[in-house]
């Protein structure tokens, strides 16, 4: 029973990661893609945790939840400003 439950959690997390990664690829606008990427990061953190790798999950959470979105969105803003100028 416990093993089936562990497997169910791993399968659910894997499916979530696959769906989030597909959604990130299909989203073409980089700013909106950053939101989907943030969910992909959360999914990966969940997957690492149910695979009993909390250290890796913590690294993923730390980098993926605020720092990466901030870098992407600042870059998008700068690129858009330069495009407007041209």
């Amino acid at each position: 029973m416990r093993e089936a439950l562990d497997d169910a959690l791993v399968v659910a997390s894997l499916l979530f990661v696959a769906a989030a990664a597909t959604a990130a690829v299909l989203t073409r606008d980089p700013a909106r893609q950053a939101v989907v990427l943030s969910l992909l990061g959360l999914g990966l953190a969940l997957l690492f945790t149910v695979l009993q790798a909390p250290d890796v999950a913590l690294s993923q959470l730390a980098v993926g939840s605020a720092v990466t979105p901030l870098m992407i969105l600042l870059t998008v803003r700068e690129v858009r400003r330069r495009k407007r100028r041209e």
């Binding site: 979530f16 769906a19 989030a20 959604a23 989203t27 943030s38 959360l42």
Partner: peptide
């Protein structure tokens, strides 16, 4: 919970 959230974010 997380499944519908992904739907909303995508």
């Amino acid at each position: 919970g997380l499944g519908p959230s992904l739907w909303g974010a995508a």
